[in-house]
């Protein structure tokens, strides 16, 4: 069964909305989530493929991009007994 993230060709997601002059991050916490993830991968707490897998199995279309990242990071740290 395809995972939730496998959306190619599906209907029902509405129009594509383009934000003009969009900043790289919309809030400070988003930048922190991105940097935290790179740091944890850099330290070998988990690897990039494990992170992708965690995003795919824990994501929600109701959550924003970096909310999904944060949920994946929390899941991996919990599964590894880090926190």
């Amino acid at each position: 069964m395809p995972r939730l993230n496998d959306v190619g060709g599906q209907d029902g997601f509405g129009p594509v909305l383009e934000e003009l002059d969009e900043p790289p991050f919309h809030a400070d916490w988003e930048a922190h989530v991105m940097a935290m993830n790179r740091a944890l991968i850099g330290r070998g707490i988990y690897n990039l493929d494990e992170f992708r897998d965690a995003v795919e199995r824990t994501m929600s279309h109701q959550s924003s991009y970096y909310e999904n990242w944060f949920r994946a990071i929390q899941t991996l740290l919990k599964e590894r007994g880090v926190v």
Binding site: H26, A27, D28, W29, H32, M36, L40, F70, V82
Partner: peptide, 22 residues
């Protein structure tokens, strides 16, 4: 970078996790 949403619940949860990892 914007600090607009830093009082949001998720910003607080990110800070909390950072503190634990530190």
């Amino acid at each position: 970078m914007s600090d607009d949403h830093d009082d949001s619940p998720i910003a607080a949860r990110v800070r909390e996790l950072e503190a634990i990892l530190e």
